[in-house]
């Protein structure tokens, strides 16, 4: 599965559009991590616990999107976008969406 956030997969031709695919997830960390993050926030700087949380959410949302594309028998997802929103303190929603497309078989490589 190719993922790009431009309107094509460079070097390949798009033969068919399968439609929009999306995946979203809401994740939270356990209360201990939230407490430590709150403490860290007091002094500023990077909050590693939450960076990790958003990383995991992003991976999960991407995987769900890819699963949808697989179900549509697509070869690539183009124009992938991410949107993040904070639901409550310590929980974030990540939404990934894009257009699932089919590609031609041959890799065009005329240099």
């Amino acid at each position: 599965m190719f993922l790009t956030n431009i309107e094509s997969v460079p070097g390949r031709k798009i033969t068919a559009v399968c439609g929009m695919v999306s995946g979203s997830t809401v994740r939270a960390k356990h209360a201990g991590k939230d407490f430590l993050a709150g403490f860290k926030n007091f002094f500023g700087g990077e909050i590693k616990g939450y960076t990790e949380l958003l990383e995991e959410s992003r991976n999960e949302a991407t995987q769900r999107m890819v699963r949808q594309a697989h179900a549509l028998k697509a070869d690539a997802i183009i124009n992938v976008r991410y949107a993040t929103s904070a639901i409550t303190v310590g929980a974030a929603e990540v939404y990934a969406y894009g257009t699932a497309v089919k590609l031609d078989e041959v890799v065009a490589k005329q240099v």
Partner: peptide, 16 residues
């Protein structure tokens, strides 16, 4: 035509 591969890269950070 000269592209060998294309991959989505993403990186995030949370700062307080």
């Amino acid at each position: 035509a000269k592209v060998e591969s294309s991959t989505l890269v993403s990186a995030g950070v949370v700062v307080g």
